[in-house]
Design a protein around this nucleic acid. Structure first.
Length: 427
RNA sequence: GCGGGCGUAGCCAAGUGGUUAAGGCAGUGGUUUGUGGUACCACCAUUCGCGGGUUCAACUCCCGUCGUCCGCCCCA
């Protein structure tokens, strides 16, 4: 049997309701804030990610699905994240020429070659947003507020917002030096990965999970102490705005993001209910990326939410997914009745009434049993007698009450039926 | 890429060297050939992820492989 590749999976009907709920919520909340959806390609030139995300990062260094285009020498990569592609689209389509800021959002699959575990797939899905063309702290706060709005609208609990500032380029260079100076004497006590990172990417040593490394990192100089006046002011303002918005946060001095493009504000929203893959939303400011990718000097801020992780939380914490039960269940038996039931079902549907047609042709008793299981509140019953008279029995399943109605008049009373059905469904 | 746990039907599972592979849910048929939600009856794995090996005998032990889960790593 051919099976789905490792790290990919099917999202089955029993789960898809959660996905639709998340998508609808995102669409509504971001729509209200006048963010517009953008759909960028799933594969791009490899150079986009190398330059955008940074060649030293793990994502680019060892996790990308990269291949040569057919017959060509161009190197192509399945997108491992969404921001680089959106920024590329922003530059290429000269969205800056429209003036002001661009508020964009996207959703879709991303690809990283990783060892799968719960909440971590090789093909995974994100919804993300980018606010491009604004350097003000208010932009950072808006974006964070929208993320918390979405999560709140989904009734998710036990979430924590962690925030930090990684400053601008020169702040980071200063901090990097201070950090390396501090860590150098402890070099032998660091875990293997961290030793390696000391020269390659020292900031990432801060969020190592090795206990000894953590202990050493505990007393390391803090990045906010290396921030210049402007950077510090930006960060303080963002924090003040969050307080004004009544959004709770925790400053995490060890929070540094894994992608090179981040500047200033960096944040993560984590859940206690997800094990090791705790981050549901991650983002921050990326003031240098647009220029790095060939655009004008343009500041921006954004985030991405991991869909699979949200779905896990919804399944774990909230009740059942929204179900789609039919308005009517249509029972029929006998040649003429079965033929008429199909026509009737089609006509009712075009009149706006949902119906599930029982195709089995089995005994009435069996069909009623299925009607109960389907969650329908009412049945239409067609047998030989009804077929002959062009009627159908409308039966209310809860009370058992039923009466014969001409098929033609059924079509005229769809509004009335709909009202009664939705009343019964909600009771 | 590293370390570890697990893999019996659509789902939840019992069985842990001896041959008919429990049970429950779901499903199908019937009691009830035109009226359901209950009840009862019957059916529903020639086979235990897959491939090798050990053994008189393997779901059970060994090796490999695939998948999944947990941790590291990474990150959403």
């Amino acid at each position: 049997m051919i099976q789905a590749l490792r790290g990919t999976r099917d999202i089955l009907p029993e789960e898809v309701g959660y996905w639709q709920l998340i998508e609808a919520t995102v669409r509504e909340i971001l729509g209200r804030a006048v963010y517009q959806e953008i759909r960028a390609p799933i594969f791009e030139q490899t150079a986009l990610f190398e330059r955008g995300i940074g060649e030293a990062t793990d994502v680019v260094g060892k996790e990308m699905y990269t291949f040569k285009s057919k017959g060509g020498s161009k190197s192509i990569t399945l997108r491992p994240e969404g921001t680089a592609g959106v920024v590329r689209a922003y530059i290429q389509n000269k969205l800056n020429a429209q003036g002001g800021v661009q508020r964009l959002w996207y959703t879709g699959p991303m690809f990283r070659y990783e060892r799968p575990q719960a909440g971590r797939q090789r093909q995974f899905h994100q919804v993300g947003l980018e606010l491009i063309g604004c350097s003000a702290p208010r932009a950072d706060a808006e974006v964070i507020a929208l993320a918390t709005d979405i999560l709140k609208a989904l009734n998710l609990k036990n979430l924590e917002l962690a925030i930090n500032s990684v400053g601008n380029g020169s702040d980071r260079a200063n901090y990097r030096e201070a950090l390396v100076n501090y860590l150098e004497p402890y070099k032998e006590d660091l875990d293997e990965d961290s030793k390696d990172r000391l020269t390659r990417n020292p900031l990432r040593i801060l969020d190592s999970k090795d206990p000894k490394t953590q202990e050493i990192a505990q007393n390391a100089p803090k990045i906010i102490d290396s921030l210049g006046t402007e950077s510090k002011k930006h960060f303080d303002t963002v924090l003040q705005l969050l307080t004004d918005l009544d959004i709770k946060y925790q400053i995490d001095h060890c929070l540094v993001r894994g992608l090179d493009y981040y500047t200033h504000t960096a944040f993560e929203i984590k859940s206690n209910d997800l094990g090791a893959q705790a981050t549901v939303c991650g983002g921050g400011r990326y003031d240098g990326l647009v220029k790095e990718l060939g655009g004008a000097d343009t500041q921006a801020v954004g985030w991405a939410i991991g869909m699979e992780r949200l779905v896990i939380l919804l399944q774990k914490l909230s009740s059942s997914q929204p179900v789609n039960s039919p308005d009517l269940y249509i029972v029929s038996r006998g040649g003429a009745a079965e033929a008429q039931s199909l026509l009737l079902a089609q006509k009712l549907r075009s009149a706006g009434l949902g119906g599930e047609l029982d195709l089995s042709g089995s005994a009435f008793g069996k069909q009623f049993k299925r009607a109960d299981r389907s969650g329908a509140v009412a049945c239409l019953v067609l047998g030989d007698a009804e077929a002959e008279n062009k009627t159908a029995n409308l039966k209310w399943l809860a009370s058992g009450e039923q009466k014969a109605i001409a098929q033609s008049s059924l079509l005229e009373m769809t509004d009335e039926l709909k009202a009664k059905i939705s009343e019964l469904k909600n009771s």
